[in-house]
Design a protein around this nucleic acid. Structure first.
Lengths: 172, 172, 172, 172
DNA sequence: AATGAATGAGCCTTCATTCAT
DNA sequence: GATGAATGAAGGCTCATTCAT
C-alpha cells in the first residue's frame, strides 16, 4: 500500500507477502474488499486506541496538548498507518467498502468530545467545530511528513512549535 | 472521478461519458495516464490561476485574508476539483504519472511566497514554515466539505470564522 | 518492411511515409491487402524484368552463368527487394493475399525454361528439376547477405566462385 | 502457425486449440513472445538433436551424405517444424524475441564443423564457406516441399539424386 | 480527390475468485 | 484447512476502414 498506493494492492501480492496461497486467503476473508476493510479498520482501531488511552478529563487546553502529543508519538512509529488511513478517508474506497462516514472518523471521537467540552467551557473558540480537527490533527501529520522528507529539521523546529500554533488557533 | 474515485476511472467509461468511441480518445490523448495527467494538471492550473490572480503585495496579514477568500470562493464553485487535486496529491499516482512533486504543489507558490514574506516581516510565526499551509489551506477545504455535507450551517458559522482562526494561528 | 518485418507494416505508416493521409490510400488501393499484393507483385515484376532481359538462347551452361550474373547484379542494388520477396514467398501471406503459387514464382520462368532446355540437351543433370532452382538462386542470395553482413569478403571470395559451384552442381 | 503463418497466431487461438482459457496460458508462459520463443527454440532443439545424433567423424564426403540423410529423414516427419524454423529465421521475429542470431543458427553447428573439416582436409571446395550450407540444407527442404506438393514424384526422383547434386557442388 | 477524426472489432494482459485435490 | 491451476470478465490499446467536410 505504501509504496504503490492502495490501488496497486493485489490479492496474490497479499498472499505472497503472507506466505500463504491465494486460495487460503478466502478462508479468512470473504472478499478482497473484506481484506481492505479489515486492514483499514484495524489500523484505525489501533490509532483510536492510542488516542483514547489518553486521559482528557482535565483542563481542555492541557488535555488538547496531551492529545496532540499522543498523536505525534503514535505517528512517529506508525506514520505509514496514518497516511493509509488518510488515503482511505479521502478516496472513494469507504463508500465502496460499505463503511459509513460515522464509523470512518470514529478514531477522533475523543478529540470531538474534548472539542465539545472545550467549547462548552468557553476555552476553545466556538463555531467552526467540525473544522477544528483540521487544526489539531492535520498539522501533526504534515509535520511528521516534513520531518521524514527532510524538509524540516526537528531540532530547529520541535514539535512543541506545532502544538503552540494549534493551541493559539483553537484557544480563545 | 468524484463518484467512484480516480481508481475506478476506466477508458470505456470516459469514452462513454464523452459520447465517443474508445478509439477516439486516443486521438487526443496518448495514454490513459495522459488523460489523468491532463485532468490533474488542468484542474491545478485553474486553481493556481484563481489563486495567483490575487494581489498579495500589501500587508501580509491582510494579503493572507484575501488569499483565503480567493481560495474559498474558488472552492464554492469547484470543490470537486479541489478534492480531486487532493486525491491525486496523496495517492501514488503522481509518481506513476511522472509528475514531480515540485510541479504538483506549484499552485501554492504564491501562498508560499506570502508565507515567506510574512515570516521575514515578523508578522507570521516563524519556524514551522512547511506546516503553515496546513493551517491556511486544509481548513478551507474542510469547511467547504462540512457545509456541503450539511454538518455545518454557513449562516451560523460564516467563513470569516475560519479565516479568523487561521489568522490567529499563523500571526504572531 | 525491411526494418521490422512485413507484419509491422501499418496503413498509417504507409500513408505517413507517402506524405498522404490514410484516407487517400483508399483512393488508390481497395485494401491493405491490396497494397501488400501490389508491393509484392511490383517488386517481383522488377526482378522478373531484370532476369528476363537476359538473352538465354545460347549454350545452356553459358546462359546459366549469364543469368546468375544478372541476378547477382540485380541483388547488389536491390537486395532488400529480394529479401522481401522471399519473406512473402515463405510466409502465409500469399495465400491470404490470394496470390497463386504459380504466379508467385513466375519471376523464375526464364530460369525454368533454361533449366528445361539444359536437361533436354543433356547438359544439365536431369531429375530433380524443381529443386535445381535452389542451387542456382538461393546461393546468390546467401552470398549477397553474407557480403552485406561482412562475414564474407568479396575480394577474397568473388562471386565467380559461387557460379562455379552452382554450375558444377547442375552441370552433368 | 502452419495454416495461417506466425503473424496470425493469436493468444485466444492458442488457448482455444489447447482447450484452455486465455488466462491459463499465462500460468505457463509470461508473454505471447515467450510462447513464440519457446515454440521456436523447442522445434530448433529437436532438429538440432536429430542432426547432432549423427556421427560425423569419418570421411567428410561420407559424413556429409549421412548428415543429409539425417536431415531428410527428420524432414519427412517434421517438415512443418522445419518450415516454421525457416519462417522465424527469416522474419523480424528473432530480433523482437531477443534471440541472438548465433543462437538462432546453432542447430547447424555440426554442419558448420563438418564443412570446416572438409575444407581443411581439402575434400570440400574452399572459399564460399558461409554459402555452402545453402547447397546442403536448402535443397533438402525444397525437395521435401516439392514432394509434398506433388510436383515431384519421389519414386522417379529419389532423394539420392539431391545428395548426388549437392555433393558434386561441394566436393572438389 | 484529399483529409483525418471517428469507429469498433479484436488483441494482449491482469486479477479476483473458484474448486478439485 | 491449504493449495494453486484454471477461469473469464474486464481493462488498455491498436489499427484497418469509413465518411462528412
Amino acid at each position: 500500500m505504501m509504496e504503490q498506493g492502495i490501488a496497486a494492492v493485489t490479492l496474490s501480492k497479499i498472499a505472497k507477502s503472507a506466505d500463504v496461497s491465494s486460495g487460503t486467503v478466502y478462508t479468512y476473508f470473504s472478499d478482497k474488499d473484506d481484506i481492505l476493510r479489515e486492514a483499514y479498520l484495524d489500523r484505525k482501531a489501533k490509532l483510536a486506541e492510542a488516542i483514547n488511552a489518553v486521559d482528557l478529563s482535565g483542563n481542555p487546553k492541557l488535555a488538547l496538548e496531551i492529545l496532540m502529543d499522543a498523536i505525534y508519538h503514535y505517528g512517529k512509529n506508525h506514520l505509514d498507518d496514518m497516511l493509509i488511513i488518510r488515503e482511505f478517508n479521502q478516496s472513494a474506497l469507504l463508500k465502496q467498502l460499505n463503511i459509513s462516514l460515522d464509523e470512518s472518523y470514529s478514531e477522533f471521537e475523543s478529540l470531538n468530545q474534548l472539542t465539545n467540552r472545550g467549547i462548552e467551557e468557553g476555552v476553545f473558540v466556538a463555531g467552526a467545530y467540525p473544522v477544528i480537527m483540521s487544526y489539531a490533527y492535520t498539522p501533526i501529520l504534515e509535520y511528521l511528513i516534513a520531518v521524514r522528507n527532510n524538509v524540516l529539521d526537528p531540532k530547529k523546529v520541535p514539535f512543541d512549535k506545532v502544538k503552540e500554533i494549534s493551541l493559539r488557533a483553537i484557544t480563545k
